[in-house]
């Protein structure tokens, strides 16, 4: 089914996969980094207080990165849904055939009703015309 997709569609699907992988990887990496920072056995030439401050900010940024990756995953889900809705031609075709079937039956019903109504009215009209033209009240 997916063999004969056009190239840009193929690329789009691939980009969805890479987005998924990237986001999950980013979550994992950021989490690992936070844990590493929490261990805090890194030797640096910085002042101790500066180091602590830097670690705080880095952790916040990494936490925000995890949140961003999570929201990006939500966006990805919504994008995939949208893609499916917009490009799922078989289901659209099914909906169209269903609709057209529905409307056709409705049309037939209406036609039949109109025809029977017309027949009734025509019969009644004949009688009424007869009555009208033979009466003295015209």
């Amino acid at each position: 089914m997916h063999r004969n997709l056009p190239q840009n569609k193929e690329a789009l699907l691939k980009s969805y996969t890479t987005r998924l992988k990237d986001d999950v990887k980013s979550m994992l990496e950021n989490f690992e980094e936070i844990i590493k920072l929490a261990k805090g056995d890194n030797e640096s030439q910085l002042n101790r207080m500066t180091q602590i401050e830097q670690d705080t900010f880095e952790m916040q940024v990494r936490a925000a990165n995890i949140v961003r990756a999570g929201e990006s995953l939500m966006k990805l889900v919504s994008d995939i849904k949208q893609y499916l809705i917009l490009n799922d031609f078989p289901s659209v075709n099914e909906a169209i055939t269903q609709n057209s079937k529905l409307f056709r039956t409705k049309q037939q019903e209406c036609d039949q009703k109109l025809m029977s109504l017309r027949d009734d009215i025509a019969a009644d009209l004949y009688d009424l015309e007869d009555e009208y033209f033979t009466s003295i009240y015209k």
């Binding site: 929490a38 602590i52 401050e53 936490a63």
Partner: peptide, 9 residues
């Protein structure tokens, strides 16, 4: 300091 940083994250 670490505690504070972790809680902020």
């Amino acid at each position: 300091g670490r505690k504070k940083a972790l809680s902020a994250a």
